[in-house]
């Protein structure tokens, strides 16, 4: 009888302790959140997350580089030859198979983030074995569609979210 009573008491205390510990843990979690969250991009950075680029002065075969979110973005006006090369490439030859048409909105314009997918260097334009880009850091070759062809990089150059605004402007982001 006496033992039973004790048992009852102890389970009740355990229940109270469990509830309190849970409530306490939730609170600590909630308090940690702001401290973690403050390291994320702040609202002024987020507000600048999209830029508009004037492309009316870019001639065929020319490439411009703009800064977006602190990274270079390559905007290339491709020649007929470039486009043809990109289209004719067999999927079997690609390390990261992707059709050229999946990588552009208008065939003439290629927009890619100029950051090598290997370790983040900036590839140089018009170089390499596939007349696209060549990364000097560890020797990755990209083709005229910004796809990885040779070297240590695992994936193609990333295509950012962008859209054409009118006929001579691109909005990135």
């Amino acid at each position: 009888m006496n033992e039973n009573k004790n048992k009852d008491k102890s389970t009740r205390r355990d229940f109270l302790t469990t509830v309190t510990a849970t409530v306490g843990a939730v609170g600590v979690g909630a308090a940690v959140l702001p401290v973690i969250s403050q390291m994320n991009p702040d609202s002024s950075v987020k507000a600048l997350a999209s830029i508009e680029v004037d492309i009316s002065k870019v001639k065929e075969g020319q490439e411009i580089t703009v800064l977006w979110r602190g990274k270079p973005v390559f905007i290339k006006r491709r020649t007929k030859e470039d486009i043809l090369k990109a289209k004719e490439t067999k999927m079997a030859d690609l390390k990261d198979p992707q059709e050229d048409k999946a990588r552009v909105i208008k065939e003439e314009w290629l927009v890619v983030i100029g950051v090598c997918t290997h370790l983040g260097c900036v590839p140089a334009g018009g170089q390499g074995d596939y007349s696209g880009w060549f990364c000097p850091c560890h020797g990755s070759h990209y083709d005229t569609s910004g796809r990885i062809r040779k070297g240590p990089a695992p994936t193609n150059l990333e295509v950012p979210k962008y859209e054409f605004v009118g006929s001579d402007k691109i909005k990135i982001g």
Binding site: R13, L16, T17, V19, T20, V23, G24, G27, A30
Partner: peptide, 13 residues
């Protein structure tokens, strides 16, 4: 409100 509840719980313990 949260702290009030937690304080009461801890006080009971």
């Amino acid at each position: 409100l949260y702290l009030l509840i937690l304080t009461i719980l801890v006080y009971l313990i």
